[in-house]
Amino acid sequence: MEEIIGITNIEPKGTKFERSETGVLKMTLADGTVHPRIYPICSFPVANPDKFISIRNIENKEIGVINNLGDFPADQQALIRKEIKLRYFVPVIREIYKITEEFGIYNWETKTDRGRKSFYVRGRNDNILMRGKTRLLITDIEECRYEIPDYARLPHRSLIELDKVL
């Protein structure tokens, strides 16, 4: 089956990820092949970020797929996760200080997992998407994306602000 659909598994056994001195991720496979520069890409970045992570080379060709990141040793997981975090620049909003509106543009002042950020969002319809029951994806006018994994768990004050735009 795997042969037919052409998915190459990257097994935890024998695979080694390293951060090279140049700041990029390097992968050595069990058979000794070295890929000096790899990019991990999530197949389900929102729902299942740990499953089916595609490992690609510099030409953007798939080398193989990590079925479940959890199967890898902790230090290897951390390396991949860090690379994924750099790739997916989607700050997680932890707190909303204030949302103000002027002429259909909303100014969000927030605290994210990557620091404080004030950004502008056009309207409310298309740029604030509800995924599932509690997850919110927000796109600002620069096309930067922000995430609120569970809005019910924001501080009370943030909820009042958020209420203005939902």
Binding site: T22, V24, R37, P45, F89
Partner: peptide, 16 residues
Amino acid sequence: MVGGGALEIEYDSKVH
């Protein structure tokens, strides 16, 4: 990348 990007420079036959 998603939501952003990286500037990568290749020298010394390595990508930085």
